[in-house]
Write a protein that binds this DNA or RNA. Structure first.
Lengths: 156, 156
DNA sequence: TATTGTTATACTCTATAACTATA
DNA sequence: TATAGTTATAGAGTATAACAATA
């Protein structure tokens, strides 16, 4: 039971996650985005116009955090917020054409950062890791169902 | 190239790493430890008395961070700091018997937290994930060689 | 001068609580 | 009253820069 303290999966995941967050931030900072803002633009791109409450649930983020993410995005014109006529309390968020363009550029930078982050893994290991993380995400995220139904997780 | 924004391995690793860090912190807080302090005690346990500079390098942490980790540990008597007679600038850190006892209790709590964190993975998947993270750690950590030589990584 | 450890300060990401406006 | 969004504040984890003591 000795010698295992430094190789527990939980601590490894926590610390390597920090390293990953740092690299993604460095990559996105050049595009004036944070990793969470990139994720947000990606979500809007993938699933279209969405209410803020639903966005927060899917991202697993507090509504107050969402506001701090959205404000600069709206100021830069990457995102628009409109009141829902049916329920004027709701704000409906949409990705603008400029936002889509910006997302594409940032996605390129993120891919480069990930290629460097995972340079120690071959392509098969990297895909294996991604699949394991997807399974883990489905059980860890308290809020939302995974985007892929388990039997068809290959085509994610 | 659509629909992949939310499932990139890098972002998954970053976000799940945050979740892991939260769970470990919750587990260790009951023992008045942080995840990093647990890692520090584990390192001292595994490799014995060590200088602060080397500790910081192995953990991939700034020396100033190490100070804030060590101060409470020393105040609680889990760790001792002594000047190196050969080079009086160096502080040599050792795990105390009380620290070893405390580490064992905290390790139990961490194991429970990890079992719950990885409850969505079976034992084979969890070990697979741990091996992938070990490989990744070796290439990501700029500072130190991995504790296991690659050909014999099974017995970690 | 260079190095070890320390202190002070600031930054990133996130959460909690109180507030506004709509329902 | 209850809900959607906002604001203000606080917390954890980390890094940078300036400093003291020692080499």
């Amino acid at each position: 039971m000795l010698e295992e303290h430094r190789t527990s999966a939980g601590l490894l995941l926590a610390l390597l996650g920090q390293a990953a967050m740092r690299r993604l931030r460095d990559a996105h900072t050049a595009h004036h985005l944070s990793p969470r803002q990139f994720q947000l633009l990606g979500l809007l791109h993938d699933q279209g116009t969405t209410g803020q409450q639903e966005l927060g649930q899917v991202m697993g983020v507090d509504p107050s955090v969402l506001v701090t993410l959205l404000n600069p995005l709206e100021a830069d014109g990457y995102v628009s917020r409109q009141r829902d006529p049916a329920d004027r309390r709701r704000h409906v968020v949409a990705l603008s054409p400029a936002g889509a363009t910006h997302l594409a550029a940032a996605a390129h930078a993120q891919r480069a950062a990930e290629d460097e982050l995972f340079s120690g893994l071959d392509q098969a290991q990297r895909e294996q890791l991604r699949q394991l993380l997807l399974v883990l995400q489905a059980s860890v995220q308290p809020g939302q169902a995974s985007p892929c139904s388990p039997p068809a997780a290959d085509q994610c």
